[in-house]
């Protein structure tokens, strides 16, 4: 059976108990549904000229009247982001690649720093100075644990590969 559009007012009893005060969003907004809006598609008169690549949600027909222009997609992370925007906000295929792209771009960011002759000061970027100042014991314990685990893992993996068992998956 095909879907039919009917005028709801034709339905017996339509709206007889309607109570506008019983709106869970009241008083958060001046209640107006799309049908009541004389100009529901209204847009600002001036549209921002598009001079950078803008990825657009396929759940809307156009680029918004105003938009942010920071960091257009570039490189491998950009390719992944462009692919993600083929899918709607309703899909994991949209969001998961975006998270992957975010991580890829972290590596791109470090490479970019190095290309520009800058070695990122990760200790400072992570704000470890304040951990050292206000949270020393926990911070030192955490760093020591990470160092121990890393050293342990390196030793474990290298001894494994010595025995040529590297194809076996490690069990933790």
């Amino acid at each position: 059976m095909k879907n039919q559009t009917i005028d709801p007012k034709q339905i017996k009893g339509w709206g007889i108990d309607a109570d506008p005060k019983n709106d869970p969003t009241y008083p958060m907004r001046a209640r107006m549904n799309v049908g009541q809006d004389p100009d529901s598609k209204h847009r600002p008169a001036s549209l921002q000229p598009q001079d950078v690549e803008k990825l657009r949600s396929i759940e809307r027909p156009n680029v918004s009247a105003v938009f942010g222009t920071t960091i257009p997609p570039t490189g491998l992370s950009g390719l992944i982001r462009r692919a993600a925007f083929h899918y709607s906000e309703n899909r994991y295929r949209h969001w998961l690649p975006l998270i992957v792209a975010d991580r890829v771009q972290v590596v791109e960011g470090v490479l970019d720093d190095l290309v520009h002759g800058k070695v990122p000061n990760i200790f400072a970027e992570k704000g470890y100075a304040v951990e050292w100042k206000y949270n020393r014991t926990a911070f030192v314990t955490k760093m020591a644990t990470i160092a121990a685990l890393t050293t342990g893992a390196i030793i474990w993996f290298s001894s494994k590969s010595d025995k040529q068992e590297s194809r076996k998956r490690p069990r933790y």
Partner: peptide, 14 residues
Amino acid sequence: RQGMFGNCHESNTE
């Protein structure tokens, strides 16, 4: 126009 300024439709393309 309904006071939902946190839900504007003309400022976020993504």
